[in-house]
Design a protein around this nucleic acid. Sequence first.
DNA 1: TGCAATAATCTTACTAAGTACGACCGTACA
DNA 2: TGTACGGTCGTACTTAGTAAGATTATTGCA
Lengths: 226, 226
Amino acid sequence: MVKSVRGGTKERISLSRDRVLAGAIVVADAGGIGALTIRSLAQELGVKPMSVYHYVASKDEIIDGIVDLVYSEVDLPVPGGDWRTEMKRRADSARRVLAGHPWATALLPSRLHPGPATLRHHNAFIATLRTAGFSMELTAHAFALIDSYVFGFALSENALPIHGPDSVADTAASMMQFFDADAYPQLLAFTMEHVMRPDYDFGKEFEYGLTLILDGLGGSIGGEAK
Amino acid sequence: MVKSVRGGTKERISLSRDRVLAGAIVVADAGGIGALTIRSLAQELGVKPMSVYHYVASKDEIIDGIVDLVYSEVDLPVPGGDWRTEMKRRADSARRVLAGHPWATALLPSRLHPGPATLRHHNAFIATLRTAGFSMELTAHAFALIDSYVFGFALSENALPIHGPDSVADTAASMMQFFDADAYPQLLAFTMEHVMRPDYDFGKEFEYGLTLILDGLGGSIGGEAK
DNA sequence: TGCAATAATCTTACTAAGTACGACCGTACA
DNA sequence: TGTACGGTCGTACTTAGTAAGATTATTGCA
């Protein structure tokens, strides 16, 4: 077992796997996943590049590790609670967490090596629905549907430099200006007359879709399971 | 304008922006987006690395270009047709196209520089809903909801090496074996008793979710619009 | 037909990454 | 006082993207 031995009484400022992963998140949060290199990470940690390899086997392992850490920030749904409330709370939490770590959005749903926080999360998700009376089949439907929506929404939301109503308009404007708007009349009208309105907030779409989905799922169990 | 001049009567085997992008897709399809490097692309094209820079300014421009090409493969919804039919056809098409270019899944919904095919696609999408009587507001809801779902689903589906019922079980098995299954009892039961069943096909979840979403949207216009 | 202008391709080389290999160093226990 | 070992680092090899400019091919025009 390669493990950080820091048995002494005084905490030495030494590296550890946890510090490596925490540093990696700091770097990625600051500059995106592209800015995360072994060298930039080493600098963040005040150490030379090769030192980090004492705690992780490869950069891939770092990625798997920080994705799991991000998962660990998301509220777990609580089995036994009202399933709708729990699903909504967890979805809102996931969206908020991903807003803080936009680089993680495309990575969360696509890991081949899920970490313990990820597994714990899935376990709680399934337990919540099963406890609420969902059949296996409906649980599978709900799992695929909710996660596709939540992560898909976050992907659009976080990929674009959109934070708050203003920047939607800015982004839309900067995209449109390169093109012959006459060629896309409906897109233009939609953008001008709806998206660029000062009171339009793309983020609010999240709630509409989530409600529609939960309503739809709710209709498939016989009545509102407790 | 930098443009390939091939005015002669005989087609010379020369480079062009189109050939560069087509080659890039071949390389990415074969080895993933990670395998797409300027050097591997040049080799595919039978040319030296720097030659491709005569047709594109940077690797980023290549990425933007091939993403737009992928978009161009997706069936356009037809304004005036039954909106449910059109939405379903386009969603199925998008899913099928992304199955052929899995590397593109996370890139499609996250471009800052949409190409003409992408804009044409969005235009047709909006036109189809507006023509069917959707309000601006409901169109915006539908846009965010459907695309989040379709791309989010494709992201899960294509990230994992899952193609067909067999490999779901394989993948699930290989993921589980690394962990203390006792710690995740509900996840384990769900996986064993449902996901690993020979007749379980993750791909079929797509239709369930899409139907639920379209039903939900349909309930918000006053009756089934033509 | 010959030649200058222009287009297309390639050579070289610089910089940034991931990481293999093995040297060094400080501490703890014999 | 070693000496073994965990932790850190120096060096260097490989693969990327791409800048600069040399070289070659083509084309329009005298």
